[in-house]
C-alpha cells in the first residue's frame, strides 16, 4: 500500500536524522553550534559498518558508531571551547575531515555485505492496520530514535543536569557562579551530541543501506542543523522535522520504485528543497528562541 510504504519509510529514513537533530540540539542548547555533525554521522556510519562487518555483530557496530561520532565531536569541542576557534569554520572543517577520512578508510568496505539490524515486530501492536507497520515493525535503533526526543525533552526540562546545560547556553556566567565550569558542560554536550549523530550514522548503514558508499549521509547532518532551527531548539519539534524529511525521502523512493516518469535526479532534490522551504517559513519566527549565548555566532541580521 502506497501510503503505508511512504509512512513506514518516513520513520525508517527519518530516524537517523532524528538522532542527529537531538545531538545538534543538545550541543546548541549548551551554546555551541556544531556543523561537524555531518562528519560525526559519517564516522559513526563507517565505524558501525566496519565493526559489524568484522565481528558480524550489529550491536557492536552501534557502540562503535557512538564512539566514533563522539571522538570527532571532541576535536570540535577542544578547538572551539579551549582554543577559541570560529565555531562555523571549525565545524565545517571537521565535516570535511570526516568526509575525507571515511572516504579513504572506507574503500576496502565498499563491496562488503553485513547483516544489519532486523525488524522487530512488537506483538499485538504491529497488527494495527497502517500504524502497526509504520511504527511497530521497525529495527531497534528506530524504536530508540522515536523515544529519544522524549528522553531529551525530559532531561533538558526536568533534571538538574538539563537545567545546567540550558543555563550554559543562555548565561554561562550564572553557571560559573553556581559552581560549575561552563567549558566542561559545553564539552560534555558537544561530545554527547556527536555521539548521538554517530548513532544516527550507525542506524543509517545498519538498518537502511546495509552497505558502505562514500559520503553515505549526503548532507543529513547539515539537514539536522537546519531542522533544529525549524524546531525552535525544542526536541520534539526538531524530531518532527526529521520525520518530515524522512517522508520526503521516502515519497521520492516510492515514486522511483513505482516507475514515475520523472528524472531520479529531480526526485532526489525533494528532501533538500523541502528542508529549505521549511526554513523559509520558520526562520524569522524561530530566531527569537535561539539560545542567548549562540546569538553572537549564529544570529544574523
Amino acid at each position: 500500500m502506497f501510503i503505508e510504504d511512504v509512512l513506514a519509510g518516513a520513520v525508517r529514513y527519518g530516524s537517523s536524522v532524528i538522532f542527529a537533530t537531538q545531538g545538534e540540539l543538545i550541543s546548541e542548547r549548551a551554546g555551541v553550534i556544531n556543523l561537524g555533525i555531518e562528519g560525526s554521522m559519517l564516522c559513526g556510519a563507517l565505524a558501525a559498518f566496519a565493526t559489524a562487518s568484522a565481528t558480524g555483530s550489529a550491536v557492536a557496530g552501534i557502540f562503535a558508531g557512538l564512539a566514533a561520532g563522539g571522538v570527532l565531536a571532541a576535536i570540535h569541542a577542544f578547538l572551539v571551547i579551549w582554543r577559541g576557534a570560529n565555531q562555523l569554520a571549525a565545524g565545517l572543517a571537521i565535516s570535511f575531515l570526516g568526509l575525507g577520512l571515511t572516504a579513504a578508510l572506507g574503500v576496502s568496505f565498499v563491496s562488503k555485505q553485513i547483516t544489519g539490524l532486523g525488524a522487530i515486530e512488537i506483538p499485538l501492536l504491529s497488527d494495527i492496520p497502517i500504524l502497526g507497520k509504520v511504527l511497530f515493525t521497525q529495527d531497534a535503533l528506530t524504536y530508540l530514535a522515536l523515544i529519544l526526543p522524549f528522553i531529551v525533552l525530559f532531561a533538558l526540562s526536568r533534571t538538574k543536569w538539563g537545567l545546567i546545560l540550558r543555563a550554559t547556553g543562555e548565561r554561562p556566567e550564572v553557571v560559573r557562579a553556581y559552581g560549575y565550569d561552563p567549558k566542561h558542560v559545553r564539552a560534555a554536550a558537544v561530545i554527547l551530541g556527536g555521539a548521538l549523530a554517530g548513532l544516527g550514522g550507525a542506524q543509517l548503514v545498519l538498518a537502511y543501506t546495509l552497505n558502505w558508499v562514500e559520503n553515505v549521509t549526503v548532507g543529513r547532518g547539515f539537514v539536522a542543523v537546519a531542522l533544529v532551527i525549524f524546531g525552535a531548539w525544542r526536541p520534539l519539534g526538531a524530531a518532527a522535522g526529521a520525520l518530515v524529511f524522512g517522508a520526503a525521502l521516502s515519497l521520492q523512493l516510492q515514486l522511483q520504485a513505482r516507475g514515475v516518469d520523472v528524472s531520479i535526479w529531480l526526485l532526489q532534490m525533494a528532501p533538500y528543497v523541502l528542508t529549505l522551504l521549511v526554513l523559509v517559513f520558520t526562520s524569522r519566527r524561530q530566531s527569537k528562541q535561539i539560545p542567548e549565548d549562540l546569538k553572537a555566532v549564529f544570529g544574523g541580521t
Binding site: L79, R83, G84, A85, A89, L97, L99, G100, A103
Partner: peptide, 28 residues
Amino acid sequence: PATSVYVVTATVLLVVLGWRGTRSGARS
C-alpha cells in the same frame, strides 16, 4: 578516492584555527 585530500587540507585548517583562535580572541 579523490575526497581523501580533505583529510590533509581540513587538518591544516583545524590546526590553524586552533592555534590562531585564542590570539585573535574571536569566538564568532
